[in-house]
Write a protein that binds this DNA or RNA. Sequence first.
DNA 1: TTGAAAGCGGTACCAG
DNA 2: CTGGTACCGCTTTCAA
Lengths: 337, 337
Amino acid sequence: MTTIHDVAEAAGVSISTVSYALSGKRPVSEKTRRRIEDTVRSLGYEPDAGARMLAGRRTHIFALTEPLRADTHAPTHMAFVLATTVAARRRGYDILLLTDEQASEGMNRVAASNLVDAILVLDVAPDDARADIARALRSPTVFIGIPDDAEGLTCVDLDFEATGHLAIDRLADAGHTAAVLLGQTEVSYVKSNFPRRLLRGVQAQATLRGVALEWATTGVTTTDVSAVRTAVGTALDRGIRAFVVHAVGDVHEALLAVVAERELTVGTDVSVISAAASFDTTTLPVPVDTIPLVPQQSCELAIDLAVQRLEDPHAPARIHLIPPEYLSAGSVAPARE
Amino acid sequence: MTTIHDVAEAAGVSISTVSYALSGKRPVSEKTRRRIEDTVRSLGYEPDAGARMLAGRRTHIFALTEPLRADTHAPTHMAFVLATTVAARRRGYDILLLTDEQASEGMNRVAASNLVDAILVLDVAPDDARADIARALRSPTVFIGIPDDAEGLTCVDLDFEATGHLAIDRLADAGHTAAVLLGQTEVSYVKSNFPRRLLRGVQAQATLRGVALEWATTGVTTTDVSAVRTAVGTALDRGIRAFVVHAVGDVHEALLAVVAERELTVGTDVSVISAAASFDTTTLPVPVDTIPLVPQQSCELAIDLAVQRLEDPHAPARIHLIPPEYLSAGSVAPARE
DNA sequence: TTGAAAGCGGTACCAG
DNA sequence: CTGGTACCGCTTTCAA
């Protein structure tokens, strides 16, 4: 194993100069710096992680806690984990996984042992136990999602309420006076934090704009496509022509299929808006207006905040809501009287 | 922050005694050990990770590399990550994630910096670039899955070929002379390592047992349920009554639905075997014989192997195949002539 | 612009 | 059974 001493010797300088040349924390003359860098490359030197942690009091590791509940939507979750990992790496951090029981216990353990510089929280539940843990910890902690009691916590998320407002506004602007919110599974409104926020936003704005709203869940614990088809069919029968969909891809497809079977056309006869979709809605059989949920946005911001709090531990904790963005695809039609 | 010195002082012993009392690497009298443990608890002492790494030349961290290709089946993948994390934790190890480009580059980086004690490889491709990297590395590396060139590598996986044999044997034993393998998506036979192994096993045994085999993929890049329905319908039309399914839950459901629509009964008119399913087939609408793929088995074995190689770096590398297990549910019917 | 040296908090060897 | 202490490899202060 090659150490900083080997590099120093080979380059004919002291180890402190090597250290500074590599960290840039002290000016080093151009020529010696280049000589050192060459030596590092030719020797294949990589600083020892343990030594760096011990001496530098920085581990360059973030913990990512994810309970992975049974109702967690795997593809969406994977997208968040991936986005977090990539964003972290970009800032020079690795990700240490805390799953299952370790999601909570592990937070204390890795914080107490100084294994990580900060903690990122995924899969946030309304009454998440990790909120209290985070408040008691000295390690910076950033929630991606918002628990009911977010007092004193740093949180990041799409503004789901504003997303709900925006969707209803577009439908109301088009003259619709009735709409259906095709939502998530029933348990997710209890176990997760965001479906209810979207629901609240939709409901509030519907009331404000005079839109008669109906809320249909898409299964109890798991997506039930036939239930979706029934719900959509019933709504269409009753003359409702506007849908806000906050659900997985299958639900979108089921909705579009039922519409097509009735020989109705999205964008002409029927209006559809996909709200907070974390998958690529452009691959749907029909173009659909979308207010996307972009994991990269939340995760990059979360990483930035973690790094910030590391540099300035006194930065005040607050909730960071990402404003929704409306992507038009022509799927909202003027209401017919 | 409380250190080992604080503990030693508070307990009235030397730091070496504290260290040994906690590691158990040297006998410590019952009474002093208890006194130390009490002190540790009351002070909330947790050894510093960096210091432990540096002095102990062990990080207690395993890397988990997962490229997360677009065709990766998220729920199955999550199950493997979870199983790995839990198994690792049980042996005292944390998991560091290497995704995306870091899946390959990261291996060299974390090995060179002594960030991890071993590396676990997930999402193995037939021509996986990580095979060569692993061969060049000093860090113990365990593949969960088998690349084409596994020379010199430690690999763990379900014995997919034997799984194929077993499925065909059961059908042949029941008198079937024709069967359909309802497989994965087309790309997975190119990008992944295990679908082709199952396929080979099924094909070989079908030839051996005189079973006319047809192989149907279930979409190109993504599962196409309507294609599955068509394939099943065609097979039934042609009198085929035996199906081996190596696919996600949706495909099973589509198959069972088509069978039901024709007023045929699984276990009487039609035989179905689910091969290497990583989801819970008992929740299917009809009981189905299953040769399960249990992530826990592979992952626990992988962790054990990693730990073993840590203790004995000279243990020879080899492929560990987990024998398939057949779970009867009465879905295989005797063939009718 | 550079070097020397004091830690960082453990582990494990050498004594007793 | 227990204590003293030499490192582990790097960061950073102090001096030059």
